[in-house]
């Protein structure tokens, strides 16, 4: 045991270091790629000395805020998915599959098309709708005797309902569909500092929540009976943490639209690196989530043909096969046991 401990710690630090390298490399490539062609030298100069106005604007007003925004959203989505998965003890819980993202999107579409609210309150409406939808789908599939398969199916149905109502609202309001469509696909094109300042308080909230929760998720792997015998009020904890998890998603939906599969896939990838019971699991999820979304977004920028591909499309195309593989592997373990 005395020998095993340092080995685990050093492996952890290698993983953290790898994630950081992924983020830094992704950030560098993300700064390099974009509409106008800017050399590495010019980017370096933009940070240290004098450059032309165009370079300055495209680095500091377009690419740098977008880079920050993408990493924050990735981290928040991953943290939310990780928290949902450990709270509901359901490995398929995630903001996308439970319908929380689309529920928040519904609230935002309602607020934007009918202009009920001033802009600052829109995240709150998204949050409320996300909470309502999330609790509906979690309670339908049973929070206590969580059945992963049932959760995904009821989530799919609720997603269908949310999308149908969104379509109804768009058609009813005769809204400019093309812009909202792009937003509904989930993308970061054209985002700037105003979105960064909007999401920053929520990101700080996420970081605080994750630092506080990191030691708690280990306990939430236990059953309710075990928890109450340890003196925890399990129901209250699960309720609070579910709200926290949903509060991490709603602001990302406001700035970037519903981006699926980050919250689902990242916790699974992270649990390959460190076990779910580890206190480092949640923070590592955030790092890996930021790295993944950053790379996906850079990929979108590289592939831009006429208009950029929304990043939600890339994450869905990458994430769905992993979901299929997980479903198949679950079926196999069931039969073997």
């Amino acid at each position: 045991m005395a020998i095993a401990r340092p080995a685990v710690t050093s492996r952890l630090w290698i993983n953290v270091w790898l994630c950081l390298m992924l983020i830094i490399l992704g950030a560098a490539i993300s700064l390099k790629t974009g509409y106008s062609n800017i050399s590495w030298q010019q980017i370096y100069n933009a940070f240290t000395g004098e450059v032309s106005v165009i370079v300055k604007i495209s680095v500091f007003e377009l690419r740098f805020p977008r880079l920050l925004l993408v990493s924050m959203c990735g981290a928040m989505l991953a943290a939310s998915g990780a928290l949902m998965q450990s709270v509901s003890r359901n490995n398929l819980a995630s903001p996308g599959l439970t319908g929380v993202s689309n529920g928040a999107a519904l609230g935002i579409v309602l607020a934007v098309t009918y202009q009920w609210l001033p802009l600052i309150y829109i995240p709150w409406l998204g949050l409320i709708c996300g909470l309502v939808v999330g609790f509906i789908s979690l309670s339908l599939s049973g929070i206590r005797d969580a059945n992963p398969m049932k959760l995904v199916l009821s989530g799919a149905a609720i997603n269908a309902l949310c999308l149908a109502i969104i379509a109804a609202v768009l058609i009813h309001a005769r809204a400019d569909a093309s812009e909202l469509l792009y937003w509904l696909a989930g993308g970061f094109s054209g985002r700037s500092w105003s979105q960064v300042t909007m999401i920053l308080p929520w990101f700080i909230f996420t970081v605080i929540a994750v630092t506080l929760c990191a030691s708690q998720t280990r306990w939430l792997q236990l059953t309710d009976e075990q928890l109450s015998s340890l003196g925890y009020n399990a129901g209250r904890w699960r309720f609070l943490l579910t709200i926290t998890a949903i509060a991490m998603v709603a602001p990302t939906v406001v700035v970037a639209g519903p981006i699926g599969f980050v919250g689902l896939v990242i916790p699974h990838l992270t649990s390959r690196l460190v076990p779910r019971s580890s206190t480092k699991w949640l923070p590592l999820c955030m790092l890996l989530g930021a790295a993944m979304l950053l790379w996906a977004d850079t990929f979108c920028k590289l592939l831009a043909i006429k208009q950029e591909m929304p990043v939600g499309v890339v994450t869905a195309v990458l994430g769905s096969p992993l979901l299929i593989a997980y479903i198949i592997s679950q079926g196999k373990t069931k039969r073997a046991s």
Binding site: L181, Y182, L184, A185, G187, G260, I305, K306, Q307, E308, M309, P310, G312, V313, A316, V317, S320, P321
Partner: peptide
């Protein structure tokens, strides 16, 4: 997957 592809085609 297919719906995401539809959204992508539509957005671009």
């Amino acid at each position: 997957i297919f719906s995401a592809a539809v959204t992508g085609v539509l957005a671009v």
